[in-house]
Amino acid sequence: MGIATTERRGTDRVRRLLAPLGVAAGVGAAFAVVGVVDPNEPGHYPTCPFLWLTGLYCPGCGTMRTMHALAHLDPVAALGLNPLAVAMIPFLLFWWGRWVLRAWQGRPRRTTLAHPAWLWAFIAVVMVYWVVRNLPVGAFLAP
Results as ranks from 00 to 15, higher is better:
P42T: 14
R16E: 06
A25F: 02
M1F: 05
V132R: 00
R98L: 13
A32V: 13
R65W: 01
L84H: 05
R133V: 00
V131Y: 01
C61K: 02
T47Y: 01
W96E: 10
G43C: 04
A30V: 12
R8T: 11
A117T: 13
C48S: 08
L141S: 03
L53W: 12
E41V: 15
M127I: 15
F140D: 06
P20M: 07
L17K: 08
V128N: 05
V125G: 06
T63H: 00
F50W: 15
A139I: 04
A117P: 00
A124P: 03
N82T: 07
A117G: 08
W130T: 15
G2H: 14
N134S: 06
M67Y: 08
A29F: 14
P108A: 12
V128C: 03
P75E: 07
G2W: 03
A4L: 11
L18Y: 01
M67G: 11
T54M: 09
F122N: 10
V34R: 07
D38P: 06
L113K: 11
F140L: 09
A121E: 04
P116A: 11
V36G: 03
V131G: 04
V132F: 01
W52Y: 08
I3S: 12
P39C: 04
A114E: 13
R13C: 11
R102S: 14
Q105E: 13
Q105F: 03
V14G: 09
L135W: 01
R109H: 12
F94A: 10
P59E: 08
L113Y: 07
P59F: 04
R8C: 01
E41A: 15
V137M: 12
R98D: 14
M1L: 10
G62Q: 00
R13P: 08
A71H: 11
L92C: 15
L79H: 09
P42Q: 10
P143G: 13
P108H: 10
P20G: 10
R102H: 12
P108R: 13
G80L: 00
V100M: 03
P46A: 14
W104I: 04
L84S: 09
A121T: 12
P49K: 07
Y129T: 10
H72N: 14
G138H: 01
P75T: 06
V131E: 03
A69W: 01
L81V: 00
R15W: 07
I3L: 13
L79W: 13
V86N: 10
M1E: 10
T47D: 09
G106R: 11
N82C: 03
V23L: 15
P136M: 05
G97A: 15
G106F: 03
V27L: 12
P75L: 02
G22E: 08
L73P: 01
W99K: 04
V23Q: 08
G60V: 00
L21H: 07
R9I: 11
W120G: 08
G60F: 00
L84Y: 02
W96D: 10
